[in-house]
Design a protein around this nucleic acid. Structure first.
Length: 383
DNA sequence: AAGCCGGGGGT
DNA sequence: ACCCCAGGCTT
C-alpha cells in the first residue's frame, strides 16, 4: 500500500498537558514575572476589573497612565456608577474601543443595582455583566478571589499554540475550543494553596506571553532557560516559533492585470528599467501596455502591441504567448504576455531600454514572474 | 462565522 | 506597511 504523504503539519487530536505545567508557570511568575504593575498587589475587584477592561486589545504600556488617572478621579465602583457619562468617556478618550467605556459605566451601575455594590467573584456571574466575556471573567475571579478558572487571551493563545504545537488560526472556532480545553487542563492543582497559585498562574501566563514567548523573537531562542516550558515546547523543538501561532488569514486581495510584451530579435528580448519606487522598483522588466478594453480582447492587445513596438524595430507578427498570475502581499497580478517577433531592430534605444540576451538573464535584476515567462518561452524553443 | 471597534507599539 | 495587542458584542 502506498502511504499518503503528510505534506501539511498536522496537530494531533489529543495533546498531553504535562502534569506540573501549572506549577511551573506559578514558580516562574514568582521569581521572574511582573510584580509592580499598578493593578497588581491588590484584591480590590474594582481596580482589577477596570484594568482588565482597559487591557482588552490594548498593551500594558498604553494602559498604565489611563489607569492611574481613572482611579484617581473615580476610586470606587460606586463613584463610577454615579459619575456622568461625559466624565467616563473623557477619562477613556484616547484609549480606543469606546464601547468598553460605555459598558464599563453600565457594568458599574449593574454592580450597584443588582449586586449590592459588591463585585461578584463567580466567573459565571461575572460573565453576565456588560463588557465581561469568558476570559475577562476568569481573570477578575482569579486575581480578586483566587478562583480556579482559566483565561484564554492573546498571550495564552500564543503560548499554547507554541508549547502544544497547535496549527491553525486561534481565532477559528475549532482551534479556540481546543485551547479552552487545554486551558482547563493546564491549571495548577486545586488545594489549600489554590487561591495564591491561581493569582500567580494567571499573571504568569500573561507575563510569559508578553515578556518571553513574544511574537517576534521569543527569549527561548537565546536561552532555553528563559522559559519554564521550553523543555516541553513543540515549537522550540521543531523550530516553529516563527510559524506558530498561525496568523490570521488575510482578507481576499484584489486582482489586477497587465499586458507585457515579449519583443524578440534573435536571442535578444527588449527590457525596460522600472522606476525606483513602486512594484519591482529598479528592476529590469518587460515593457507593458495599457489596455482600456474590459474584458480582455486578444486581437486588440495584439494590435496595440504592434503599434507600441514601432520605435524598436520592424515587427513580423504579434500573438498572445502566455498568461500567469503573480501574488503580492496586497494584490494578485494577472500577467498576459504578447509576443512580438522583429525582423529588424532599431539601432538606438533610450537609456531605460535595452536588449537582453536570454543567455544574460542572470546578469540583470528581473522580476520573478518575468523571468519565469522568458524561461518558459525558451523552454518551448521560441528563442 | 464574520464584521466591527481604534490607538499605539514592534518589526 | 503590516501585524498584533490582558476581547467582546452584534449581525
Amino acid at each position: 500500500m502506498p502511504r499518503k504523504p503528510a505534506a501539511v503539519p498536522v496537530t494531533p487530536e489529543a495533546v498531553a498537558v504535562p502534569p506540573d505545567f501549572g506549577m511551573r508557570v506559578v514558580r516562574w511568575q514568582r521569581t521572574h514575572g511582573r510584580h509592580d504593575l499598578p493593578w497588581q498587589n491588590t484584591r480590590d475587584p474594582y481596580r482589577i476589573w477596570l484594568s482588565e477592561i482597559m487591557l482588552q486589545q490594548t498593551q500594558v504600556a498604553a494602559v498604565i497612565e489611563y489607569f492611574q488617572r481613572f482611579v484617581a478621579a473615580l476610586p470606587t465602583v460606586a463613584a463610577l456608577a454615579a459619575a456622568p457619562a461625559d466624565q467616563v468617556m473623557a477619562l477613556w478618550a484616547g484609549l480606543g474601543y469606546y464601547s468598553r467605556a460605555r459598558n464599563l459605566h453600565r457594568c458599574a451601575k449593574a454592580v450597584m443595582d443588582d449586586h449590592g455594590g459588591v463585585f461578584p467573584t463567580d466567573p459565571e456571574v461575572l460573565v453576565t455583566l456588560p463588557g465581561i466575556g469568558r476570559s475577562t471573567a476568569a481573570a477578575i475571579a482569579a486575581f480578586s478571589a483566587g478562583v480556579r478558572s482559566p483565561i484564554l487571551d492573546g498571550n495564552v493563545k500564543r503560548v499554547f499554540a507554541r508549547v502544544f504545537g497547535i496549527h491553525g488560526y486561534p481565532g477559528e472556532r475549532a482551534i479556540e475550543t481546543r485551547m479552552w480545553t487545554l486551558a482547563g487542563q493546564a491549571l495548577p492543582p486545586a488545594g489549600p494553596d489554590q487561591a495564591k497559585d491561581m493569582v500567580a498562574y494567571t499573571q504568569g501566563l500573561m507575563d510569559l506571553g508578553a515578556t518571553i514567548c513574544s511574537r517576534g523573537k521569543p527569549a527561548c531562542l537565546a536561552d532555553a532557560a528563559n522559559c519554564p516550558l521550553s523543555a516541553d515546547c513543540v515549537a522550540r523543538r521543531d523550530n516553529l516559533t516563527a510559524v506558530l501561532p498561525t496568523p490570521k488569514p488575510r482578507a481576499a486581495i484584489p486582482e489586477r492585470s497587465t499586458v507585457m510584451l515579449i519583443v524578440r530579435h534573435g536571442r535578444d528580448v527588449l527590457v525596460r528599467l522600472r522606476p525606483g519606487s513602486g512594484i519591482w522598483g529598479g528592476l529590469w522588466s518587460l515593457p507593458e501596455i495599457a489596455l482600456d478594453a474590459v474584458p480582455f480582447d486578444a486581437e486588440a492587445a495584439e494590435d496595440a502591441a504592434l503599434e507600441a513596438v514601432r520605435p524598436f524595430g520592424e515587427p513580423a507578427r504579434a500573438y498572445l504567448a502566455g498568461e500567469l498570475t503573480h501574488v503580492f502581499t496586497h494584490f494578485r497580478l494577472l500577467i498576459r504576455a504578447i509576443r512580438v517577433d522583429l525582423t529588424a531592430a532599431a539601432p538606438r534605444l533610450d537609456a531605460d531600454s535595452r536588449w537582453l540576451s536570454l543567455d544574460d538573464l542572470d546578469a540583470l535584476g528581473t522580476p520573478a514572474p518575468v523571468r519565469r515567462l522568458l524561461e518558459d518561452q525558451a523552454r518551448i524553443g521560441l528563442f
